[in-house]
Design a protein around this nucleic acid. Sequence first.
DNA 1: ATGCCGGGTACGACCCGA
Length: 259
Amino acid sequence: MRIATWNINGIKARLDILLTWLSQEKPDIAVLQETKSVDESFPRSEIEALGYNVETHGQKSWNGVAILSLLPFDKVTRGLPGDDRDEQARLIEGVFSVESSAVRVCSIYLPNGNPVDSEKFPYKLAWMRRLEAYVADRLLLEEPFVLLGDFNLIPAPIDAHDSKAWWGNALYRPESLERFRTLTNLGLTDALRATTSKTAYTFWDFQAGAWRRNAGIRIDHLMLSPQAADRLDDVRIHKDVRSWDKSSDHVPVEGKFSF
DNA sequence: ATGCCGGGTACGACCCGA
């Protein structure tokens, strides 16, 4: 089974390349972030025409996540628990039946957190605390669980073209990294790092010739429960998609599993 | 090194992202 994540930066503006990519790659499950669409106007019929089941969790203008799956959904959960006042659409989870077990796939758009002297940074840290509680609950199930999406976190110096320039940024500063490491310490495995020690990026800014200069960062991740990590065969970053006309600033990242 | 790009909203000009 192939499970991919892609921050598409606007579902309406990217529908053509999304359909092209889905048609070419045919991932079993693709999760999206920054759909920037309310559920009512999500272009689901075009995606369903390719054989995908579509579940969305959106809001007007910003954020928004979705799961596209060739397998039928057994269950769908929307929103991250822990703060009833939080109205930002940043998490959707689906459960699927595979062979004799369930696979739980959770798409997240983790808050950016910049600027760090605004309320956005404590919101990011608080969101990550809530995510930790969510993950701890899921790990108790002892089943394949794939937490994937745009984490807005640069895990290590190797994951940025110029890591020194990012130091202090909400994507790469001690408080953020501490929270990210807690996810690992709870028992999640960074799929890309489990398969290679080489430099690999998933995002290149639209500005300053970042793509041309390969000035990228790795912030889109697949984090795996032990039961999912045991079945991981490979990770592939669809880097070529960044050069497509009208591409997102992020590219798809795909995990291949033997289930 | 931030908003030079780029999307969304809405139709001028901001808000937002990493």
